[in-house]
């Protein structure tokens, strides 16, 4: 038994689709037109990675600092927190004070984590 979705076409999002198609076509088209019209005369110096005119030194890949990880992780957490605010803001006038109090509790709990991260100097770069 296959579960097929209902017959719904998100026609309101047609402009978004057109926008994405034009944006991708613009990017890909620029690369394509460039590759068609530019002269192709490669030599070793030209194919070298450009580092301000100096010969490249060292490995191109190196290990990134763990500091990036903690920033990304905190961003994910507070991004999810913000996501909960969108439907809350939409239905706020229908629920009223009850919704306000529960969101304040929600934010207060996360504020504990924010203060913890702040006191642990997670936001300091060095």
């Amino acid at each position: 038994m296959l579960i097929m979705p209902g017959g719904y076409v998100p026609i309101d999002y047609l402009p978004v689709l057109i926008f994405m198609v034009i944006a991708s076509a613009f990017g890909l088209g620029a690369l394509l037109v460039g590759s068609i019209f530019r002269p192709r005369r490669p030599y070793p110096e030209k194919l070298m990675p450009y580092e301000s005119g100096n010969p490249p030194v060292g490995e191109p890949r190196y290990r990134f600092s763990i500091k990036f990880y903690i920033i990304a992780m905190l961003f994910v957490v507070f991004d999810v927190e913000t996501v909960f605010l969108y439907p809350w803001a939409v239905v706020f006038d229908k629920i009223g004070l009850y919704a306000f109090v529960e969101m304040m509790i929600f934010i207060a709990i996360l504020l504990v984590g924010y203060v913890y991260a702040w006191k642990k100097e997670a936001f300091k770069w060095d």
Partner: peptide, 26 residues
Amino acid sequence: YTEFLYPFEIASVILLVAIVGAVVLA
């Protein structure tokens, strides 16, 4: 924000765990 209020508040605790975990590890 009405019927599933309790899971919603639990979500904040889970996010708190994620913050503490990331800070402790890194």
